[in-house]
């Protein structure tokens, strides 16, 4: 079997007495969507932050394609091929949709040290950015200021910016949140096709999307992975039902 694109080994994180991530070891294989589900407060966003580098771990290791990136910061992990989308949009709100994807294109070419070249007149950058917008269906809104977008559109833009990076893997925090039924279906269909380009570690609340997309599911409860497996495995697991789905076994 080929080595996983992403793997974590015994990740831990505590905030005071609260253990937000407790010995988490998961991996993400080529071509798959690996969903992480869990009740509110289970530590999903903390785990994502540790994986993408914005939060330092107390213990454990993160590996990207076999390379230990535990000591690297967010930007180094992004350059190593990690494309992240945020649950609470981290976009340049005063800028237009187009400027936001353009930033991704600039980051992907690491050309931010060009001080006098016009970014708008660089066809490579603008085409690259526009393509990403077209793929998520946001090209029509490219002149709109981010602050004027709906929550769902911001999700789409988050995904578009991640696309511009041409990452080795995606780490997505609730990409379908706020999209509505129609938009959610469209995003689900899009992510479905995306896994062949790069695998996706998906944190999601929308169970329809999870069951439609996930090759594997990990269930996170109180910072611990209580089960990992296929959809059927998870549905059949009594521990999961008890802890998460709330049904008595």
């Amino acid at each position: 079997m080929s080595e996983p694109v992403l793997s974590t080994h015994g990740l831990r994180k505590s905030f005071g007495a609260l253990t937000a991530t407790d010995n988490v070891s998961i991996d993400l294989r080529r071509g798959e969507i690996h969903a992480i589900i869990g009740p509110n407060g289970a530590g999903k966003t903390t785990l994502i932050a540790q994986i993408s580098g914005s939060l330092a771990s107390d213990a454990g290791r993160v590996e990207l394609e076999g390379r230990d990136v535990t000591s690297l910061g967010t930007e180094a992990r992004a350059r190593a091929g990690l494309g992240r989308t945020f649950q609470i949009s981290a976009l340049a709100m005063e800028d237009t949709v187009f400027e936001n994807v353009l930033l991704g294109a600039v980051g992907a070419t690491s050309g931010a040290w060009a001080l006098f070249r016009s970014v708008i007149h660089d066809r490579n950058l603008t085409d690259h950015a526009m393509q990403a917008l077209e793929r998520v269906g946001l090209a029509g809104a490219h002149r709109t200021r981010c602050a004027d977008l709906s929550h769902g559109q911001r999700r789409q833009l988050e995904v578009a910016v991640a696309l511009t990076l041409r990452p080795r893997l995606f780490v997505m925090d609730e990409p379908t949140a706020g999209l509505g039924a129609e938009g959610s279906r469209a995003m689900t269909a899009f992510l479905d096709g995306l896994r062949v380009e790069a695998p996706i570690l998906l944190v999601e609340h929308d169970m329809d999307a999870v069951f439609a997309l996930a090759d594997r599911i990990s269930v996170l409860v109180y910072g611990r992975i209580i089960a990992t497996g296929t959809i059927d495995d998870i549905r059949a697991s009594e521990e999961v039902r008890e802890a998460y789905l709330g049904e008595p076994a």
Partner: peptide, 24 residues
């Protein structure tokens, strides 16, 4: 109008955004 200006302007608004596209 340069790539630098675009990135700097974004850095004012969101540190996380700029970091997550691989820029410092």
């Amino acid at each position: 109008r340069s790539p630098f200006g675009l990135a700097l302007n974004a850095a004012r608004q969101s540190t996380e955004r700029v970091q997550s596209v691989g820029l410092n």
